[in-house]
Amino acid sequence: MKDVLKLLEQDARLTPDDIAKATGRTLAEVQAIIKKATDDRVLLGYHAHVNWERVEGEHEVWAIIGVRGTPKREVGFDELAAQIAAFPETRMVYLVTGDFDLAVMVVGKSMQEVSDFVSRRLYSLDGVRGTNSYFIMRRYKDQGTTLKIDPPAQRLAVTP
């Protein structure tokens, strides 16, 4: 199953037939693996990786918000995390070690919009003791891909 998932993670456009060829599995096998992985919520989706910074007029503001919270008996931070995750403004919610408890990626149209969300929505949640905001100024690498355009490696077309 891992080989199928790894290939899809690398390139979600691969068809089941492509994957069958690349892994030496039968088409039916690959289809069954994909179905099971989808049902089990192992395969969560297929998304294009867009670099919006290169699209004119499309400037979203992203910020990492460090949230310090108070853990609750029995559930720890799970309840707070679920509440935060329910906002469409949040893109990632992670429990982390270090100076704060939850790392939250928030997206908005402007710094003002993100700030408003943090102060009015996040900070006012029960169990939130404080926040630190880290606005993202420039991206260098995203989801394993470096964003500067690398010229292709020079390789002779035919070599022994």
């Binding site: 490696a153 390789r155 002779l156 077309a157 035919v158 070599t159 022994p160």
Partner: peptide, 25 residues
């Protein structure tokens, strides 16, 4: 080298996908 003359032909063309290499990509 049997590869050499082939190389010259190839150098004059565009949009070629080369499976003729002998080194990692």
């Amino acid at each position: 080298s049997g590869i050499r003359k082939f190389f010259d032909l190839l150098a004059s063309m565009n949009g070629v996908i080369s499976l003729g290499v002998g080194e990692p990509d």
